[in-house]
Write a protein that binds this DNA or RNA. Structure first.
Length: 770
DNA sequence: GACGCAACTTAGAATGCTATAT
DNA sequence: ATATAGCATTCTAAGTTGCGTC
């Protein structure tokens, strides 16, 4: 809501991004040719009795979900997040219709055509069956590794260690000559580099190249699994005697369980959560359950509770931890490392694999997103007696903490989890699973992208089909077609039904309700515009105005007939039906595959459009980020603008300004020098001219770099790039792009990402096409 | 076929760490 | 030398999907 302020720079680019997105995302519109429109006009449409009956029939939901949730126009109350910018607004939508031809592109993509069928086919045979294939052809080409090449990354850490040493030396030897120091540093840097390279090589050698192995038969996830069990958080430490809780102004010594929960609340006092009515009520109810009878009789009103001292103590502790000196921090770090070494790894089929979340979640107050009805409830401490262990029969069974036992030890190799427990707030299962760089996760990820690539081969047929289905006599089929149109065009999530009162009120495609869309016959000169406004996953607002094809528009009108706020838009459709239909069109196809597919294909297309080999690395990276951003906007990946955003933008701008002045000065000097050198053959003067020229050039380069950075940052203000990078973009597209553009991969993938996508980095050649 | 649960992926916020500016 | 911006990592909530059960 506060976003109208967005600067023109950001706005322009965003619109650009949208525009490009729609080039492909609107493909469904393509066939909205004159003919199609004419046909539609002739469409007898909704005269069928069945349809009318259907539309009136209330969905037989056991939970009776379709009750209006808000009287009148209270809609805005649910909007927890800043709206998606007006960028999704109109100017750009004009382009959508004008992009009609471009939208066909994937099929006619020069890449696919010019590369020749043979090659393309071969690639398909090679890769499309991906991780699930056991054929030799599917094995990635072996590559010589070049560990030295990537040697950069750890230098920082190693260097730092040596820096510490250096300082010591200087201190001890006081006035030693500068040259000695420098020499030493150089040597050290050399050693550091060597060390780093070695480490890297070591790491590479240790890496399990599972993608070169055969896949297990269906359903089997491992043959051998051994681990130490999860790590439990430390027991509660009682408050020191001088820290007191007050009720109604009088100090009250709480029982241990009540005190622990009180501290949970006190720790959060700076957070907005603790001011919310729902949070406070839930907390208070659960807190009282932990109290002794006397406590419960005394403490009747949360407003009379004074957590001030507990809060202050907590803040002090945080501060103290921050202010630890180097040695103390190192001690802590080593202690943590020890825990990781002991509990953070498991052995899976002869390989040591990192566990993703080996720590049991500590107790605390539940922090749901948005208006969660359960926010503030007590999340209880998990005991070993709550935990199920999963491992090999013939492995060393993990020992429960002293005096405890496990809830159960099982040996189920059709699942990937090592431990699980049931969480008390929502009653759902929590799992300990492997890290993203593990075989189990990586293989699945690879498979995901292969399914998305397979969709590419049949997406046209599927689109044609749902276009056709828009005219179906069956209401359910029509609804399915419209939903699919949204999912494909707008990358909406499937939208499962949710139990009312258990979670925040959020929706996806299939669970859209009539109040979430507004139909405009015309809006700002566009016809058939659908205005979306709803809260999606994590209560992130989705706001978008989209022109749709006429048939979709007409159907939407029909679906909304005789309905009121709170009623489902697609009352004859749910995600199961939708997915069942999809899987009949292509094995493995589900609603979310469209998100993966559209995200990846957008990236590939954007990279092709934006990239310019002549650009310098900074500009290339800006292009990459823009392509990435186009995807993030499509998928509605938002983030809260960084707290320091305005300020950091201002500092950057002032830097740019001062650099500009410098540049002006340098230019003047160059002019002057040229003047002086003119006619003269004095070598010295010529040299001066050259020098000045270089200075100007340098200035220009730096200025450009900063300006690029400023643009990038501005455009990124509330767009989260990481989510799509991590979950939606086929890494092979990025790897191939880096190879083609001669950009070091480290510039776009950090260490974690490189680790996660090791399979892609290893197998991708420059000619990879999604 | 509704329902609920199990298992797994996707998500943004919170926190931690490091490189860089001052 | 220290502060801090910004990236990386951790955390865990919130989705999707498939399956078994009645």
């Amino acid at each position: 809501m506060s976003d109208t302020k967005t600067s023109s720079v950001a706005r322009t680019t965003r619109i650009d991004n949208n525009r490009t997105i729609y080039k492909f995302a609107g493909m469904a519109e393509d066939s909205n040719s004159v003919k199609a429109v004419e046909k539609e006009l002739k469409d007898p449409g909704l005269s069928g009795d069945a349809l009318v009956v259907n539309s009136k029939k209330k969905k037989a939901k056991a939970k009776g979900k379709a009750k209006p949730q808000h009287e009148g126009k209270e809609k805005t109350h649910r909007k927890m997040k800043t709206p998606k910018e007006e960028s999704m607004d109109f100017e750009d939508s004009g382009d959508r219709s004008s992009q009609v031809n471009v939208k066909e592109e994937p099929e006619e993509d020069p890449d696919f055509v010019t590369k020749g069928n043979g090659k393309k086919r071969k690639r398909k045979v090679d890769n499309t069956d991906g991780p699930s294939s056991t054929s030799e052809a599917s094995l990635p080409k072996k590559k010589k590794k070049k560990p030295a090449e990537e040697g950069q990354e750890n230098s920082a850490t190693v260097k730092k260690k040596f820096k510490g040493k250096k300082e010591k030396v200087i201190k001890e030897e006081g006035g030693r000559s500068v040259s000695t120091k420098k020499k030493k540093t150089k040597e050290e840097i050399e050693t550091a580099r060597a060390l780093k390279i070695k480490k890297k090589e070591e790491e590479e050698k240790q890496r399990w190249r599972w993608w070169e192995e055969e896949k297990y038969e269906d359903g089997i996830k491992w043959r051998f699994l051994e681990h130490k069990g999860p790590y439990f958080p430390p027991e509660y430490q009682p408050l020191p005697d001088d820290i007191k809780f007050y009720y109604n102004g009088k100090p009250v010594k709480l029982s241990l369980p009540a005190e622990e929960v009180a501290l949970f609340f006190a720790q959060m006092l700076d957070h907005e959560y603790t001011t919310k009515e729902v949070f406070r009520n839930n907390f208070f109810r659960d807190w009282r359950k932990e109290m002794t009878l006397e406590e419960r009789q005394l403490i009747m009103d949360l407003n009379k509770c004074d957590f001030g001292e507990l809060h202050a103590m907590h803040k002090q502790k945080v501060e103290a931890r921050k202010n630890l000196n180097k040695e103390e921090k190192l001690v802590n770090k080593e202690a943590n490392q020890k825990i990781v070494d002991e509990y953070g790894y498991c052995v899976l089929d002869h390989h040591r694999e990192r566990i993703g979340n080996f720590k049991i979640e500590p107790p605390g107050l539940f922090r749901g997103r948005g208006d969660h009805p359960k926010q503030g409830m007590l999340k209880k401490r998990i005991q070993p007696e709550d935990v199920i262990i999963n491992c090999s029969k013939d492995s060393r069974i993990p020992e429960p903490p002293a005096g405890h036992r496990w809830k159960e030890v099982r040996h189920d190799n059709t699942v990937t989890w090592l431990a699980s427990w049931t969480e008390n707030v929502q009653g759902s299962c929590k799992y300990v699973m492997l890290n993203a760089n593990s075989k189990l996760k990586g293989e699945k990820d690879w498979e995901k992208y292969e399914v998305a690539r397979k969709l590419k081969t049949c997406v046209d047929a599927i689109r044609a089909q749902y276009q056709e289905d828009l005219k179906s006599k069956q209401m359910g089929t029509r609804q399915r077609a419209v939903a699919l149109y949204f999912i494909d065009k707008l990358a909406l999530r499937a939208g499962n039904e949710k139990e009312e009162g258990e979670t925040a009120d959020t929706v996806g495609c299939c669970s859209l309700r009539v109040e979430h869309i507004t139909l405009h016959d015309t809006l700002d000169g566009h016809k058939c515009v659908v205005e979306f406004d709803f809260l999606g996953k994590d209560c992130i607002r989705y706001y978008n105005k989209v022109p749709v094809i006429k048939r979709v528009f007409k159907n939407l009108k029909l679906f909304m007939e005789n309905k009121q706020e709170g009623d489902d838009l697609f009352d004859r459709l749910n995600t199961q039906m939708l997915n069942k239909h999809l899987s009949s069109l292509m094995p493995g196809l589900t609603a979310k595959v469209f998100r993966t597919y559209n995200a990846s294909i957008t990236l590939q297309q954007q990279l092709k459009e934006l990239g310019n080999m002549k650009d310098n690395v900074a500009e290339k990276l800006l292009s990459y980020n823009r392509a990435n951003r186009a995807v993030a906007i499509l998928c509605n990946h938002q983030r809260a603008p960084p707290k320091t955003f305005e300020q950091s933008m201002a500092t950057l701008q002032s830097k740019i300004d001062s650099r500009k002045e410098q540049l002006d000065l340098a230019k003047k000097e160059l002019k002057q020098a040229k003047k002086e050198a003119k006619g003269s053959s004095d070598n010295k003067l010529l040299i001066v001219v050259e020098k000045k020229k270089k200075a100007v050039q340098r200035c220009e380069e730096q200025l450009l770099k900063m300006e690029v950075q400023a643009t990038d940052r501005e455009e990124n203000k509330q767009v989260a790039l990481s989510t799509s990078k991590l979950n939606y973009l086929d890494p092979r597209i990025s790897v191939a792009w880096c190879k083609n553009m001669e950009v070091p991969l480290e510039k776009i993938y950090n260490k974690t990402l490189r680790d996660k996508f090791a399979w892609a980095i290893d197998m991708t050649e420059h000619d990879f096409v999604f």
